[in-house]
C-alpha cells in the first residue's frame, strides 16, 4: 500500500506537473491560412501526370496506379497511337475519394504519376473534384527530371527502333549463319 502511495506521488503527480509545465511553452500551431506552412517536395498532395524530358506523355496506361489505389479512385483506358506508344485515352481521378496515400506514385513504372505539395483542393461542388487527363497533365517532368521509359524499354516506337534502347544490341539477323 505504501508502494502504491509512493508510485502515485512519484509517477502520477510528477506526470501532472510535467504536463502542467507545458502551459508555459509556446504553441506549435501554424495559423494557416494567415501563415503559409512549409511543404516538403515529398509532400503527398495533388496528383499530376508528368511528361518525359522530350515533352511526350509519360503515362503508358499500364493500369498499375489504378490497381494500387486502395480507394479505387483512378480509372483509365489504354490506347495506342500511330507511333506505337501506349497512352491513356482517358485518365480520371476522383479526388473526392483520393486519400493521398501515394501508392499510385509508388506503383508507377514510368514516373508519370506524381504527388505534389499542393493540398488546397477543396471545392464547393463535389463533381468538381473529378479530374480528367486534361486537368492532371502538366508540361514538365515533375520531381524526376531525366527518366524516359521508352529509352529503357525494349518496345520500339517511332524514332526508336529495335536495338536502340538502353543496353540493346542490334536486332538479330535470323537468317545469318554467323555465330
Amino acid at each position: 500500500m505504501l508502494k502504491l502511495i509512493q508510485d502515485t506521488l512519484t509517477s502520477q503527480v510528477h506526470t501532472l506537473w510535467l504536463v502542467f509545465k507545458h502551459a508555459f511553452v509556446k504553441a506549435d500551431t501554424v495559423q494557416y491560412p494567415e501563415e503559409a506552412p512549409y511543404m516538403s517536395p515529398r509532400w503527398r498532395g495533388r496528383i499530376i501526370l508528368s511528361r518525359d524530358p522530350d515533352g511526350e506523355e509519360r503515362c503508358v496506361a499500364c493500369n498499375l496506379c489504378a490497381c494500387a489505389c486502395p480507394v479505387d479512385c483512378i480509372a483509365l483506358q489504354k490506347a495506342e497511337d500511330e507511333d506505337g506508344r501506349w497512352y491513356p485515352e482517358f485518365f480520371r481521378i476522383n479526388f473526392s475519394r483520393c486519400i493521398m496515400c501515394g501508392f499510385c506514385e509508388e506503383a508507377c513504372p514510368t514516373n508519370a504519376i506524381q504527388l505534389t505539395p499542393d493540398f488546397e483542393m477543396a471545392e464547393y461542388v463535389r463533381q468538381d473534384m473529378v479530374w480528367e487527363k486534361e486537368d492532371l497533365l502538366i508540361n514538365g517532368t515533375g520531381k524526376y527530371h531525366d527518366y524516359n521509359f521508352y529509352r529503357v524499354a525494349g518496345k520500339s516506337i517511332k524514332g526508336k527502333d529495335k536495338g536502340e534502347a538502353l543496353n540493346e544490341a542490334e536486332p538479330v539477323n535470323v537468317r545469318s549463319l554467323l555465330p
Binding site: 504536463v19 502542467f20 507545458h22 502551459a23 511553452v25 509556446k26 504553441a27 506549435d28 500551431t29 495559423q31
Partner: peptide, 8 residues
C-alpha cells in the same frame, strides 16, 4: 487541453 498540449 490545447494549452497543455502546446496547441491553440
Amino acid at each position: 487541453l490545447s494549452l497543455w498540449q502546446e496547441r491553440l
